[in-house]
């Protein structure tokens, strides 16, 4: 699954945390430090697996817990239309 930041979503870092604004829905959100790091990794690579590998090297957490937390947060970000998935797309469709 490839993820990308949804169109019309802007983010701003605020110290270690961040604020996200969905311009389509007019709703804004906050991410804590770990969530912000995950957001940047997903925005950069689009790969949850790659993000998890990186976070495991940076944070004192075991893989099963991190996997569960990342899955939960990604579900929330998609549900709030902050992330979209390219799962149904093919590179040639551009």
């Amino acid at each position: 699954m490839r993820l990308r930041v949804a169109e019309n979503v802007v983010s701003r870092d605020l110290a270690d945390e961040s604020v996200l604004l969905n311009l389509d829905t007019g709703t804004y959100f906050g991410l804590d430090a770990v969530g912000t790091r995950l957001w940047h990794l997903l925005a950069e690579h689009g790969s949850p697996e790659s993000a998890i590998e990186t976070l495991l090297t940076e944070y004192d957490v075991d893989a099963p817990r991190l996997q569960k937390d990342v899955d939960t947060l990604i579900d929330q970000l998609i549900d709030k239309k902050l992330l979209t998935t390219d799962a149904a797309r093919t590179p040639s469709s551009r």
Partner: peptide, 18 residues
């Protein structure tokens, strides 16, 4: 190398920007 303390990542919905 020292790792940062981990907290469950949290998304908070603050509400309508308007």
């Amino acid at each position: 190398s020292p790792k940062k303390p981990y907290n469950t990542p949290t998304l908070v919905e603050y509400g309508d920007i308007a």
